[in-house]
Design a binder for these strands. Sequence first.
DNA 1: ATGGGGAATGACAACGTTGTTATTTCCAGA
DNA 2: TCTGGAAATAACAACGTTGTCATTCCCCAT
Lengths: 340, 340
Amino acid sequence: MLPPFVGERFMVTIKDIAERAGVSFSTVSKALRDSPLVKEETKRRILDVARELGYQPNFAARRLVSRKSWAVGVVWPSVERTALSYLITRINAQLERLGYVTVFSINEPRSAVDVFRRFQVDAILVFDDRGERPPLGELAGYGRIPILVYGTMGRTPFPTVDVNRKQAIRLAVRHLAELGHRRVVYVGRPAQYDPLQEEKIAAFRREMAALGLPCPEDAVLDTEGMAFHDGFIAMQTILSRRAPPTAVISGSFDLTRGIVRAAREAGLSVPGRLSVVSYDNIPLAEELDIPVTTAGVPAETLAEAIAARLVALIERPEDRSGVILEPELAVRSSTAPPAP
Amino acid sequence: MLPPFVGERFMVTIKDIAERAGVSFSTVSKALRDSPLVKEETKRRILDVARELGYQPNFAARRLVSRKSWAVGVVWPSVERTALSYLITRINAQLERLGYVTVFSINEPRSAVDVFRRFQVDAILVFDDRGERPPLGELAGYGRIPILVYGTMGRTPFPTVDVNRKQAIRLAVRHLAELGHRRVVYVGRPAQYDPLQEEKIAAFRREMAALGLPCPEDAVLDTEGMAFHDGFIAMQTILSRRAPPTAVISGSFDLTRGIVRAAREAGLSVPGRLSVVSYDNIPLAEELDIPVTTAGVPAETLAEAIAARLVALIERPEDRSGVILEPELAVRSSTAPPAP
DNA sequence: ATGGGGAATGACAACGTTGTTATTTCCAGA
DNA sequence: TCTGGAAATAACAACGTTGTCATTCCCCAT
């Protein structure tokens, strides 16, 4: 059934419910928040009417008086990556579990923050996937809504949640070294400068050197971007070398898929002839034809940490501390000792 | 300088400005919106004070009384396709130009609509990219916020904007037929049932028959999904046939990229040995290594139409008419007469 | 000087909700 | 039958803003 027209307006308010249920609107307000001050029977009746009318609380009004909207805004990065979009899905779910509603904006951060302020969200999560462009610092003191940034460890004045990327790469290198690999290649320095990737590459070089493994200039492979076909092409390049590596570390899940595909098409068995370790750690890694060994923070853990930090930030905005998550190595079927 | 404490909170309201400027709060309200009812001098003084205190308007309160939120909610589809995400970017930009702010939700439609109702957006745009799942019809009469659906021509009770897909494919087939092609293949029936794709496939079969071209069962090629590597794999399959086609029509931009790449890697020149026509029409089609001939509504046109219809729907919600856009053929460098 | 009338400003009632306080209802105990 | 007092409900004042109406202020024509 259709909600009623209410004074020419298209909106069901607690007052409409009150009238219909024959109680005062303040009783409705209490009943809807399951207050113990309302008799069970009345509560049930009110809830029924609310459902029948398709009532939805007005965030604006609620926020106005209670100072809380139970909404979080997320500034969506422009790039599209499987791991990232999976992470975003999980954060959305996790925040929902914590009682928050999540909305996204694809505007650039500055304008997105404006939008979210208009909506009076309780907190804003910024995915600064590039670590570049409108210096995020400019947002400081811009509004009083707490802002949490993911992926720019120490490069903004805002509280952050981030992954110890260096450590992830270190784990990957060590794992391969322990298996006996010596010729290891890192795939994934995107054409466009990206501090997040640079960090991994530096860690790769350092760890290779530390373990006494050869790390010539071409042990790091440039790619156009960080997507499937970038990995695919990179792998083809690698295979054309005189002495191809016995193992590859990949900078992202999408790259990895391209790499594995290219290897398979070249008749190169994984992990028989080529071991692959991927950065990122999402369930999808397990569901590939060849479950891929990964080094990274499990997406679910990451999502939980981000959501938790967000909620904490809402409750105590003055605590501006950051969180750095430690990655783990998930050994699956894509790594093995090198062929003799 | 810091804003003053106001009732234990850090928030500057028009009342604070009023007190400081020695006027009433309603005068401040008017001055801030540059009303002609306030003397220039007073206005300037108020604006100065506002700046000094770092005033930021509370949109929740503003929206509560003035009926409009100037915001539009978009239900983001789960799938990721280049053409779609480009389209969404353009719609976002177009709506901004029209004075609206756009927010997204990645929840399933039912719950997303709920969220947007809470935020009191002025209209909701639903991308029903699958044409499936929670029967969109259930949303009917669910709230009074106007809903516009893209991509489900006639399959919902809501006003829609859609593309004449059949005509697009017809244009593609005719173009190839005129060039002299006879062995034409359509790539893109996704494993998962998708009415939007079925529509194109049916049109393909009908038009091939109408033009007297052969259209065996395998003239339509199944793919896993509609992404790059699906096209890549499909093309490899095609090339292994005894009598490969001289032309391919692809169901999406991403498929096309995969197809072109696979052709190139097989040493098959485009359009010398293989002509390619792609559905969708986004600027990116022009920027590929081989600018691709496309049949579809230009994304910019589509974005403008959607934004315009959305705004019209806000202004006159009772007009539930739909819009069907006619595609155009953009002949670029990927099509030529078949090799003799 | 007086009043008419526009310009400038102020007062006040919304908007939909929450939280606090006031009022009614109901029942046990006398 | 009455009373005390808890339980249930209603009334009402916020919240920060906009828009409408009422009031004050000035200046000019009478």
